[in-house]
Design a protein around this nucleic acid. Structure first.
Lengths: 161, 161
DNA sequence: AAAAAATAGTTGAAATTTCATGTATACAGT
DNA sequence: ACTGTATACATGAAATTTCAACTATTTTTT
């Protein structure tokens, strides 16, 4: 809301958008998001696989650890996965003894999911095992930079909603 | 390189790492990276699908548009995809007339890939069609913020290499 | 120069994720 | 209460990606 309110995009951002003639995809935030996401996934799954988990089930574990007992849909929302995906992952995690699943008492359509003690243990163990990787990934960054990163990613995410 | 050189991680970053007791995954950069990556993919594929493309083939298109004729491996590196994935995508794109494929003359093991005129047209068309989405995604961000985003994502990516 | 090792790509099977569809439950309007 | 609509989840088929194994070619070693 400074000068000319409504152009194609915010001031000076053309440069980051593929339609600009000077566009280079090394300046394209989503290129980096995708690359980083892929590489992080790859690196993590090496460590998760021995525990029978993959990146998605791990994310579900982290979410449940923090939110307690929530519905399938809520899991899907937080994990940004489709309901069928979550469904299959959750029931596999149940077979693995990592989560417990039961119907909601107030709404019989709803399936509630919570982490088990064993699930808690496995997630904690994995957090320990993977912390080196995460620390390495953030090495050389300031706390401010990480904060800005989180904030900006959150903003862009919200913009796309 | 300021005070105590080597702790668990850089100063004050504990907070962002799952092993910290005060960890909340809303502060976890990779949580946001994954969420954003998933949502961006979803949003883009809506627009790409009518053109017979998905997020990966689109990324390959962008890469080829900029790099010219490069090898399969190089495509895989830039796109951060596995070679078999790229292989299948490239040959499908060839059938669609979007790319041309031939053996390298200097090294018969190498398969070179380049974008065709038609590929160029399709990518350009898609860039136009998707620019609104990208602009919307970056709405409200300053040029500085996007630069920091790119830089930090690039750093983290390099750290994981 | 022959043998061994490394590199680049290809291919089919397996794993993952999503789409399309179906079922059960809840809610809204009449 | 009844009908229609919306919501939440489940399930089988389809699409995508990756793994594992294999072929062809090049490079390195002896």
């Amino acid at each position: 809301m400074s000068k000319s309110a409504k152009k194609t995009a915010a001031e000076g951002l053309d440069h980051f958008i593929p339609s600009d003639p000077a566009f280079k995809f090394r300046n394209y935030p989503f290129y980096w998001v995708a690359r980083l996401s892929n590489r992080y996934t790859l690196e993590m799954e090496k460590q998760l696989k021995p525990f029978g988990m993959n990146i998605s089930s791990w994310r579900i574990g982290l979410i449940l650890r923090e939110y307690g007992v929530i519905s399938m849909s809520e899991v899907a929302t937080h994990a940004v996965l489709r309901l069928p995906t979550v469904n299959k992952l959750v029931y596999r995690m149940q077979e693995q003894g990592l989560v417990s699943v039961h119907r909601s008492e107030t709404d019989a359509r709803v399936t509630m999911v919570g982490i088990t003690d064993q699930g808690h243990e496995v997630v904690s163990e994995l957090i320990k095992k993977t912390s080196k990787t995460v620390e390495r990934a953030l090495d050389g960054l300031s706390s401010d930079e990480v904060n800005v990163l989180n904030t900006v990613l959150g903003k862009v995410f919200a913009n796309l909603a």
